[in-house]
Amino acid sequence: MTTRLLQRWAGVVLAGLLAPALVTAATAVPAWSPDDAGGASVASVAERARKDPRLTRPLHLDDRLPATGQERRYRRIAQTPQAIWYAPEQHPTSSLAAAVSDQVVRATATRSTPVLVLYAIPDRDCGQHSGGGLRGAAAYRAYVRAFARGLGTRSKALVVVEPDAIALIGQPDCADTAARLKMLRFAVTRIARTGAWAYLDAGHSAWTPYDGRARLLKRAGIAQARGFSTNVANFRPLPDERAYATGLRRELARIGVKGARYVVDTSRNGAAAPVVGDVINPTWARLGPAPKRRFQDGLDATLWIKHPGESDGAVNGGNAAGQWCDLLADRLLGRADSPSC
Rank of each mutant, 00 (worst) to 15 (best):
M1E: 06
T3K: 00
R4T: 15
W9K: 05
W9G: 06
W9L: 10
A10S: 11
V13Y: 05
L18F: 05
A21V: 05
V23F: 00
V23L: 01
T27F: 01
T27S: 09
V29C: 00
D35Q: 04
D35I: 03
A43I: 03
A46W: 03
A46M: 09
P53I: 12
R54M: 04
L55M: 06
L55I: 11
H60G: 04
H60S: 00
D62R: 11
D63M: 11
R64F: 07
L65S: 15
A67D: 11
T68Q: 11
R72C: 00
R73M: 06
A83S: 15
Q90I: 04
P92K: 03
S94T: 10
S95A: 10
A98G: 08
V100W: 07
V104Y: 01
R106F: 07
A107T: 06
T108C: 09
T113D: 05
A120G: 15
D123V: 07
D125C: 07
C126P: 10
C126W: 11
G127F: 15
H129W: 15
H129N: 15
R135V: 15
G136T: 14
A138N: 07
A139P: 08
R141M: 13
A146N: 09
A148Y: 04
R149M: 10
T153R: 14
R154V: 07
A157W: 01
A157I: 02
A157Y: 02
L158E: 02
E162F: 14
E162L: 15
I166M: 03
I169V: 07
C174E: 02
A178N: 03
A179V: 13
R180F: 06
L181Y: 01
K182S: 13
K182R: 12
M183K: 04
M183A: 06
T189F: 07
R190Q: 15
G195L: 03
A198F: 00
A198N: 05
Y199M: 14
S205Q: 13
P209L: 14
L216V: 00
I222C: 04
A223I: 11
A225V: 04
S229T: 12
N231Q: 02
A233T: 12
A243Y: 03
A245G: 10
A245I: 06
L252R: 00
L252I: 01
V264N: 03
T266C: 05
S267Y: 14
A273Y: 00
A273F: 03
V275I: 10
V275L: 09
D278T: 11
W284P: 02
R286A: 12
L287A: 10
P291S: 13
P291T: 07
D300W: 08
L303N: 02
W304T: 05
W304S: 10
K306Q: 08
G309C: 10
S311E: 04
G313T: 13
A314I: 04
A314P: 04
G317E: 05
A321T: 12
W324T: 12
W324F: 15
C325Q: 10
L327D: 02
L327I: 00
L332I: 05
L333I: 03
A336R: 15
C341L: 12
